[in-house]
């Protein structure tokens, strides 16, 4: 009985190691930040929910009139440039700057409107101070305006499997070839 339990433990440890699960992320990984998220389905998630996959991360808000649709279009353009197998391995995480208005229902509505693949794309919200920390770590500047809109700089960050920022893009109007190249490399 004892021996069986011992073998079970060994098997469990081996399985965990094979799945590459929760070792501490590298020191420069974004996943060092503890930022609790709630996704478009109302599920609680951690910032590293896509750990193990290359992930495009950006900040946006659902009611944004000008830039955010361009930002989403830029990510969709990158997505479309990938081979099927690369795309299947790529994840997208969009975190809202506007947790007050971007409820899970509003995020789900946005995801549906944009027609994104919710098996690979996550739209999420986080507490206001956590958004400030996440933006700071990503090098995103933003500011809430009196009319409820937000000024924000647009940055797409590419995270490797362990959450290290390996590429950035602020290119919105056309495909950022360099960014796609790096993503292909990470999705191999």
């Amino acid at each position: 009985m004892r021996r069986a339990a011992g073998w079970l433990l060994v098997a469990l440890v081996a399985a965990r190691a094979a799945a590459g699960t929760p070792s501490e992320p590298p020191g420069d990984s974004l996943y060092r930040l503890s930022v609790p998220l709630v996704d478009q389905a109302g599920r609680a998630a951690a910032l590293d929910l896509h750990r193990g996959r290359p992930t495009i991360v950006s900040l946006f808000y659902a009611s944004c009139p000008n830039v955010c649709p361009l930002l989403v279009a830029a990510i969709q353009r990158i997505d479309a440039a990938l081979a099927d197998a690369e795309r299947a391995r790529t994840r997208v995480l969009l975190v809202s700057l506007d947790p007050q208005r971007d409820t899970p229902a509003a995020l789900e509505q946005t995801a549906a409107r944009l027609g994104v693949d919710r098996s690979r794309w996550t739209l999420a919200r986080a507490a206001e101070t956590d958004v400030r920390r996440l933006a700071a770590a990503l090098g995103v500047q933003y500011r809430k305006l009196p009319d409820g809109e937000f000024n924000h700089s647009t940055v797409l960050a590419l995270l490797d499997r362990d959450g290290r920022i390996v590429a950035r893009s602020s290119v919105l109007g056309r495909l950022d070839e360099e960014f796609v190249e790096r993503l292909r490399h990470e999705a191999r």
């Binding site: 009139p65 830039v67 000024n151 924000h152 700089s153």
Partner: peptide, 11 residues
């Protein structure tokens, strides 16, 4: 600037 910043332009 509208391509750099969402909402109205930079302050």
């Amino acid at each position: 600037d509208r391509t750099r910043f969402c909402g109205s332009g930079a302050l």
